[in-house]
């Protein structure tokens, strides 16, 4: 995974083995691009890249590509997330053309939460592809400038490709196999589901390392700082694939200043994860609490962040 010259700033940071820090930025639930500009302030200079979510938790929001374009204008490296829930292979490719056309070369390929979990449970889920075949499609698109059907298009479309992994969902064997399949289809980095339980995460990491997968893909560990014990309890109840130990909820309940405690916890997690072989960076997903990012990054001692070098020729805006 080191052979090629980096396609994006994020890839460069990871290639240089600088412990990367990234964050998630949710678009507005309304026709409001200024929200991205506001949120970019919490990211600029603090994170290596910000991920723009795609109808996260199956709730309708602004489409990710224009948001990523605004984020880029604001001087923050964007990563576009696209899900197979809302788009078939044709729509996914047209979004990919749009993002590459706008000079955005980081893509996170997801299956997406089921529509029944969101605010439009009556919607038809697309699920034309699964995330694994989406990654395969994107790899071919990026490396060979070909569409899914094999047709060639003009121009290069380099992409730094990501996928997701949930270290906590059973069976463990399936999780390892799925990661192997993603790697076989050409994924470059992996975002994990929010980690609350370190021993469980370690079990997964060991299984991954046994297969040597951590050397084939950059693993970005997910951290969700939650403002309050209530927010944590809510996540435990209603966000699929997240496992919150009761101990953490009690800790947050007993804290005098829960927000401060949440930041403390996130910093502790970062220190823990930083010491683990195979973890290439952390990915912060503060739910509606982007303002916490600078504080967490500062207290974790991860500043200053690597400067973004001028884009290499092959990736320069055409």
């Amino acid at each position: 995974m080191n052979a090629k010259p980096p396609r994006t700033h994020l890839e460069r940071v990871l290639q240089e083995r600088r412990f990367s820090i990234t964050a998630e930025v949710g678009p507005a639930k309304g026709p409001n691009l200024d929200l991205i500009r506001k949120k970019s302030v919490h990211c600029k200079g603090y994170v290596d890249a910000a991920f723009i979510t795609d109808n996260q938790s199956a709730v309708v929001r602004m489409s990710p590509v224009p948001c990523a374009m605004v984020l880029k204008e604001c001087g923050v490296e964007p990563v576009v997330q696209l899900t197979c829930r809302d788009r078939n292979r044709m729509a996914l490719q047209s979004e990919m053309l749009a993002m590459v056309g706008a000079g955005i070369h980081n893509l996170l390929c997801l299956t997406g939460d089921h529509q029944s979990l969101g605010n439009h449970p009556m919607a038809r889920g697309v699920f034309d592809l699964d995330s694994i075949s989406f990654i395969g499609l994107a790899r071919k698109f990026a490396d060979e400038s070909r569409f899914f059907n094999g047709e060639q298009f003009k121009g290069a479309a380099p992409l730094f490709l990501g996928g997701a992994a949930n270290p906590f969902a059973p069976p463990l064997h399936a999780r390892v196999v799925r990661l192997q399949k993603k790697i076989a289809n050409g994924v470059d980095f992996i975002n994990t589901q929010a980690i609350f339980d370190l021993p469980m995460f370690d079990t997964w990491l060991e299984a991954i390392k046994k297969e040597g997968l951590h050397e084939k893909v950059y693993i970005l560990a997910g951290i969700v700082p939650a403002k309050s014990a209530r927010a944590l309890a809510f996540m435990k109840e209603s966000i699929s694939g997240v496992f919150v130990p009761d101990g953490l909820i009690t800790r947050m309940e007993q804290a005098k200043n829960p927000e401060d405690e949440a930041i403390n916890w996130a910093v502790e997690m970062i220190h823990e994860l930083k010491n683990r072989e195979g973890v290439a960076g952390v990915h912060l997903m503060p739910v509606m609490w982007e303002a916490a990012i600078p504080e967490i990054v500062t207290r974790a001692g991860l500043l200053p962040r690597p400067e973004s070098a001028p884009q290499p020729e092959s990736v320069a805006v055409r």
Partner: peptide, 9 residues
């Protein structure tokens, strides 16, 4: 190709 990330514990 395998389970999604939403499988419960």
């Amino acid at each position: 190709n395998g389970p999604c990330g939403g499988t419960g514990i």
